[in-house]
Amino acid sequence: MSTSAITEKLLTAKKAKGITFADLEKILGRDEVWIAAVIYRQASASQEEASKIVSTLGLEPELAESLTESPLKGSLEQTIPTDPLIYRFYEIMQVYGMPIKAIIHEKFGDGIMSAIDFTLDIEKEEDPKGDRVKVIMSGKFLPYKKW
């Protein structure tokens, strides 16, 4: 999995400044997952949002323009991911994808969950047996059209 030169520059500056995605969320007033998607070039920012990102990271203002461009979405390669964390999501879909699909169809009918009208939140759940990752996805239901 490769990242763009722009992403590398942003991540390097973010690390050098000790800034987290949660810090950027407070500055921009946008969710940290969405901000990470902008930095990984999977979402586009407004000029104002892009300017805030690059100025917070101490980068040249000209870099902001590239963050406003419509990205080419879907950065994973066609092969099974090898990064353990990303692989787990692949594995979750392999095991639970069809059950999730069946339950969505049972509750909503024939359609899909939007990945455009969509939010994704990641929370840390304290647990005495080991902290847990809580991933919350919320997408608008889009029924298939009949004609």
Rank of each mutant, 00 (worst) to 15 (best):
residue 1 M to E: 15
residue 3 T to C: 08
residue 4 S to R: 09
residue 4 S to T: 15
residue 4 S to Y: 08
residue 5 A to N: 12
residue 6 I to C: 08
residue 6 I to T: 14
residue 6 I to W: 06
residue 7 T to E: 01
residue 7 T to M: 09
residue 10 L to N: 04
residue 12 T to R: 03
residue 13 A to V: 04
residue 13 A to C: 05
residue 15 K to I: 14
residue 15 K to Y: 10
residue 17 K to A: 13
residue 18 G to M: 08
residue 18 G to P: 11
residue 21 F to H: 11
residue 22 A to E: 14
residue 23 D to L: 06
residue 23 D to W: 04
residue 25 E to A: 11
residue 25 E to V: 02
residue 26 K to H: 06
residue 27 I to G: 04
residue 27 I to Q: 07
residue 28 L to E: 07
residue 29 G to M: 07
residue 33 V to Q: 09
residue 34 W to K: 01
residue 34 W to C: 03
residue 35 I to Q: 04
residue 35 I to N: 02
residue 36 A to Y: 07
residue 36 A to H: 10
residue 37 A to I: 03
residue 37 A to V: 02
residue 38 V to Y: 03
residue 38 V to E: 03
residue 39 I to C: 01
residue 40 Y to W: 10
residue 42 Q to Y: 05
residue 44 S to H: 10
residue 47 Q to Y: 09
residue 47 Q to L: 12
residue 47 Q to G: 07
residue 48 E to W: 10
residue 48 E to L: 12
residue 49 E to K: 10
residue 50 A to L: 12
residue 50 A to Y: 14
residue 51 S to Q: 15
residue 51 S to K: 14
residue 52 K to V: 13
residue 52 K to S: 11
residue 52 K to N: 11
residue 53 I to K: 09
residue 54 V to G: 06
residue 54 V to I: 12
residue 56 T to E: 06
residue 57 L to S: 03
residue 59 L to N: 12
residue 59 L to A: 03
residue 60 E to S: 12
residue 61 P to S: 09
residue 62 E to A: 08
residue 62 E to T: 14
residue 63 L to G: 04
residue 63 L to K: 03
residue 64 A to D: 01
residue 72 L to W: 13
residue 75 S to Q: 14
residue 76 L to E: 11
residue 80 I to H: 05
residue 81 P to W: 03
residue 82 T to M: 12
residue 83 D to H: 14
residue 84 P to S: 06
residue 85 L to E: 13
residue 87 Y to V: 02
residue 87 Y to E: 12
residue 89 F to C: 04
residue 89 F to V: 07
residue 90 Y to G: 02
residue 91 E to I: 00
residue 91 E to R: 08
residue 91 E to F: 02
residue 92 I to P: 01
residue 94 Q to Y: 04
residue 97 G to K: 00
residue 97 G to F: 02
residue 102 A to D: 15
residue 103 I to V: 14
residue 103 I to F: 10
residue 104 I to D: 01
residue 104 I to A: 04
residue 105 H to K: 13
residue 105 H to W: 15
residue 105 H to I: 02
residue 107 K to H: 07
residue 107 K to M: 05
residue 110 D to N: 12
residue 111 G to I: 00
residue 111 G to E: 04
residue 111 G to R: 00
residue 113 M to P: 02
residue 113 M to N: 08
residue 115 A to S: 12
residue 117 D to R: 00
residue 119 T to V: 06
residue 119 T to Y: 01
residue 119 T to K: 11
residue 121 D to Q: 15
residue 123 E to Q: 12
residue 124 K to C: 09
residue 127 D to Q: 09
residue 127 D to I: 15
residue 128 P to F: 07
residue 128 P to V: 15
residue 128 P to L: 11
residue 130 G to R: 13
residue 132 R to Q: 13
residue 133 V to R: 01
residue 134 K to Y: 05
residue 135 V to Y: 06
residue 137 M to D: 03
residue 138 S to Y: 02
residue 139 G to T: 00
residue 141 F to K: 00
residue 143 P to L: 00
residue 144 Y to I: 01
residue 144 Y to S: 00
residue 147 W to P: 11
